[in-house]
Amino acid sequence: MVKLNARLVLLLTLPPLLWAGNAVVGRLMVGQVPPLALNAMRWVLASLLLLPLGWRAIATPAARAQIAQRWPELALLSFLGVGCYNSLQYLALTTSTPLNVTLIAASMPLWMMGIGAVFYQVRPRGREWLGAALSLGGVLVVLSRGSVAALARVHFVTGDLLMLLAVMSWAFYSWLLARPPKSMRGEARPGWNWAELLLVQTLFGSAFGATAASAEFALTGATVHWSPGVAVALLYVAVGPSVIAYRCWGQGVTLVGPAVAAFFSNLTPLFAAVLSAAMLGEAPQPYHGVAFALIVAGIAVSSRR
Rank of each mutant, 00 (worst) to 15 (best):
M279C: 11
G240E: 00
G257V: 10
R123V: 05
L38H: 12
A262N: 06
L165A: 15
G131V: 03
V296A: 14
L11A: 10
S78D: 14
Y120T: 13
L10K: 05
V290D: 09
A20R: 05
A297E: 15
P286Y: 12
A62I: 00
S96D: 14
L36V: 05
V274Y: 11
V139D: 08
V232I: 09
A117W: 00
S214Y: 14
T158D: 13
A272W: 00
A132E: 04
N100I: 09
P34K: 06
G126S: 01
A68F: 02
G298F: 07
A37W: 07
A20D: 06
V139L: 08
A300D: 11
S265V: 15
L103K: 04
Y120S: 10
A291W: 12
F264P: 00
A262Q: 02
R64K: 02
R304D: 13
A277F: 15
L161V: 12
L294F: 15
Q201V: 05
N193C: 02
L151S: 01
A283T: 12
M184F: 10
L199C: 04
S227V: 07
R145N: 15
W129I: 02
N266A: 10
G205Q: 09
R304L: 15
A37D: 09
L93D: 10
R7G: 00
L14K: 13
A215W: 14
E196K: 01
S183L: 12
S265M: 15
T13R: 04
P258E: 00
N22D: 08
Y246Q: 01
V2L: 10
A291V: 12
